[in-house]
Simulated scan of single mutants.
Amino acid sequence: MIKKLVLMRHGQTLFNLRGKFQGVVDSPLTPLGIQQAKTVKPFLDDLPFQFDHAYSSSSERACDTLEIVTNLPYIRLKGLKEWNFGILEGEPEYLHPPFDQYDEYFSTHDGEGRMEVFNRINSTLCSIMEKEDHCNVIAASHGLAMREFVTYWTKDNPSLVPSRFANCIIFIFDYDTETKTFTLIDVHNPFA
């Protein structure tokens, strides 16, 4: 059976605006972040299927975004949270190393390693999609955690992965319950 997963990033936050690391720490949506979510809502409403279940990271920024784009009740899951940056949480983003060094950099600063992030978000999303009554799911998450998930499931065609995961980027996946695999169908990145 083929099911649909719509995975979206939260809207712009105060820490995004101020250039601060925000992994497991939280900051509120800005007025622009709220407007971004309102702007993508018609795209989601026009999809050729209706959502039957909704999930969000337990972070406020993801929950608030999801509440703008759907009226469905939703479940908050820590497995959908952003990469944990350890002692670098809340620090200026100029401390970011090149992306290929994130694994060692954050894990040596009491944060998560790349495989920890991938395993966490992947097992969470697989568990959601394996639920019998879940056919069309929307989930709100975060840029770097989503990047790990999307990159893994598009490894045979990396050109499908946008270089920038802007706020409110939307990925549409098919999930095959027989092979337990995700296939990227579409990307909507209106604020890139």
Rank of each mutant, 00 (worst) to 15 (best):
K3S: 15
K3Y: 07
K3H: 12
K4Q: 08
V6K: 09
L7H: 06
L7D: 08
G11K: 06
Q12Y: 03
Q12V: 06
F15A: 05
F15T: 02
F15C: 02
N16L: 10
L17Q: 14
R18A: 07
G19P: 11
V25S: 15
D26L: 00
D26K: 00
P28C: 14
T30N: 12
L32P: 13
G33Y: 00
Q35R: 12
Q35P: 01
A37V: 06
A37I: 03
K38S: 06
F43G: 02
L44Q: 01
L44M: 02
L44C: 01
D45G: 10
L47Y: 03
H53W: 10
H53M: 11
A54I: 00
Y55M: 01
S56V: 09
S57R: 00
E60R: 13
A62G: 13
C63R: 15
D64S: 13
L66H: 00
L66I: 02
T70L: 09
T70I: 11
N71P: 12
L72P: 14
L72G: 14
P73V: 02
Y74F: 06
Y74M: 04
R76T: 14
L77F: 10
K78C: 08
G79H: 05
G79I: 05
K81R: 15
I87T: 15
E89R: 08
G90T: 05
E91P: 06
P92R: 04
P92G: 03
Y94D: 11
H96V: 13
P98C: 09
D100N: 13
Q101D: 07
Y102F: 15
E104R: 09
S107Y: 01
T108H: 13
D110K: 13
D110E: 12
E112P: 06
G113L: 00
R114V: 07
R114N: 07
E116M: 14
V117N: 06
V117L: 08
R120A: 11
N122D: 08
S123R: 03
S123Y: 04
T124N: 10
L125T: 00
S127K: 07
S127T: 08
E130I: 03
K131F: 05
E132W: 04
E132D: 11
D133Y: 14
C135D: 15
N136H: 15
N136W: 12
N136S: 14
N136R: 12
N136E: 15
I138G: 08
A140I: 05
S141L: 07
S141A: 15
A145S: 14
R147E: 00
E148N: 10
E148M: 09
F149M: 12
T151P: 09
Y152W: 06
Y152D: 01
Y152E: 04
W153S: 04
K155F: 09
D156C: 09
N157K: 12
P158D: 02
P158T: 02
P158N: 10
R164L: 13
R164T: 13
F165G: 01
F165C: 03
A166S: 15
C168R: 00
I169Y: 03
I169C: 13
I170Q: 06
I170H: 03
F171I: 04
F171N: 04
I172E: 11
F173S: 04
F173C: 03
D174Y: 12
D174H: 11
T179M: 08
T181D: 02
T181Y: 01
F182L: 04
F182T: 01
T183W: 09
T183V: 11
D186L: 14
N189P: 05
F191C: 02
